[in-house]
């Protein structure tokens, strides 16, 4: 089965209660491609630190991406207007930023 069919079935499964149009599916596929390509290109920036690290990170990312397709729909579901999720990500980000800035800068 092609990637498009896989994607469409997943989409129908997740959003069967809502009205789905071709634009929704094409939009989600576009988002999928943007996320995958941007993530991999961003990982290339690590070459300024270490080329070996870049290679390892890209391989890990490829495995993670391929095992979690389709990413855009999962991302879309994670970023809804739920206050619990917003608070969760705000607190996690605060923890990550303080940790990285403090220990990374010392």
């Amino acid at each position: 089965m092609s990637f498009y069919d896989d994607f469409l079935n997943y989409f129908k499964d997740k959003f069967s209660k809502n009205q789905i149009t071709n634009e929704n599916v094409s939009g989600s596929i576009a988002a999928e491609l943007i996320i995958i390509s941007s993530t991999l290109i961003t990982a290339l920036l690590l070459r300024h630190i270490s080329i070996v690290l870049t290679a390892v990170v890209i391989l890990v990312l490829l495995v993670l991406i391929l095992s979690n397709l389709p990413i855009s729909i999962k991302l879309f579901q994670e970023q809804d207007d739920s206050i619990e999720k917003m608070l969760f990500y705000a607190v996690v980000s605060l923890g990550v930023i303080v940790s990285i800035f403090y220990w990374g800068g010392l």
């Binding site: 207007d81 980000s93 800035f101």
Partner: peptide, 24 residues
């Protein structure tokens, strides 16, 4: 100073609506 930097940076994300505040 690094601790203050991290807190102000987080506050800046909130002020401007950058992730993780982009949804709200």
């Amino acid at each position: 100073l690094l601790f203050a930097f991290s807190l102000i940076f987080f506050g800046w994300l909130y002020a401007s609506g950058l992730p993780p505040f982009h949804v709200i």
